[in-house]
Design a protein around this nucleic acid. Structure first.
Lengths: 120, 120
DNA sequence: CTCGGAGCTGGAGTCCGCTCCAGGTCAACC
DNA sequence: GGTTGACCTGGAGCGGACTCCAGCTCCGAG
């Protein structure tokens, strides 16, 4: 399992160094090994997990919920059903977000058009 | 011009009482009249403006930018072009948001499907 | 005439998600 | 052997957007 330095993970994931440490501190990132000198070494699995985390974050999932998900993942394969439930619920909220955004966007577009008409 | 009590505006707009006062304090809401006793009375225009504000907020516009927009509105009709520019820019960002959300959603759906397949 | 409820004020507090800092360690290169 | 640069730690600080509070005023119903 290839190991990545903090800097490489920053590069690969787009998360900041401090964010990585923060996520580890709160338990969103676990089992990060250290070198003899105490420096972190991340695995491919960490990078993948950060991809998931990033995706959930970008879709508005609060950290508390990501933590619950992380716990389910750590708990092992028998939590698949719960993971599905959590993700399905989130997915639904993402759908709602998209719908709301689209709806509000119509209002904005209308406003723009109104101003454009008033201008000409 | 009909006047609304704070409670009525809360009812009509969904904003909280404190939020209304906060918006006024920072200059997002202006020209709010008072009764002899010092209580606020909002107009139809305020309610409409709050609708706009709410829409911009829900689409992720930061308060600082709403303030710029509010200033343009206060400055008068000669700022239509700038308002259009501001709204167009925002509209574009909303479009990006929707696109990102859709994109991330595919990842989530895939994850769900993966778990479902693993489960059966 | 008293009481409850809606409002008022200024300022403090909260929550979230980072982000920054000081002071220290270590490995590697010149 | 000295300097650089990546990393370490614990804890403080920040930015955004509210949200709450204490203590007060006013109006209207009973």
């Amino acid at each position: 399992m290839s190991a990545y330095t903090p800097a490489q993970v920053v590069e690969k994931t787009g998360f900041g160094l401090d964010t990585l440490r923060y996520y580890e501190k709160i338990g969103l990132l676990s089992d990060v090994e250290r070198t003899a000198a105490g420096q972190r070494r991340y695995t491919e699995a960490h990078v993948e997990w950060l991809g998931t985390i990033g995706c959930l974050r970008d879709t508005g999932m609060p950290i508390a919920q990501m933590l619950r998900f992380a716990e389910l993942v750590r708990a092992g394969d028998h939590t698949f059903a719960e993971r599905i439930a959590l993700l399905r619920e989130h997915d639904e909220r993402v759908g709602e977000q998209i719908a709301t955004l689209r709806d509000r966007r119509r209002y904005i577009t209308a406003k723009i058009e109104y101003y454009e008409r008033a201008l000409s």
